[in-house]
Amino acid sequence: MSDAEVVLALALGVLFTAGTFLVLRRDLVRVVFGVLVLSQATNVYLVTMGGIGGVAPILGHGGTITDPLVQALVLTAVVIGFATTALLLVLVYRTYQEHGSIDLDDIQGAVR
């Protein structure tokens, strides 16, 4: 836990880079891809904040137990992210219905 996790850090860096790049696309579906990658990466990151290398936080199995708190936090974050993503998907669909396009460069609202 006291050592910096270089491999993890680099992998997360790549995941965030990819996610960010996708969010910056003009294709709305790819934007959703990007958001999904970002949230996946965030969850991985969060789990590792308690350190890696213990046994599962279920008592009665012996061994050093890995940090259960971060796992609980990730669960909460996953569920919230899941709900928001579901809404986003429906919104994407409705946006397409209203504007007839998923190309964000084509879609213009009354207020920019």
Binding site: S2, E5, T17, F21, T48
Partner: peptide, 26 residues
Amino acid sequence: VISVLVGGLVTVTTLVATDASPDAIA
């Protein structure tokens, strides 16, 4: 460029955060 900046930020953040070892409430 923007993406790599974000990725870099995350890498740095992960490194410094995993480097610490506080007495966690866990």
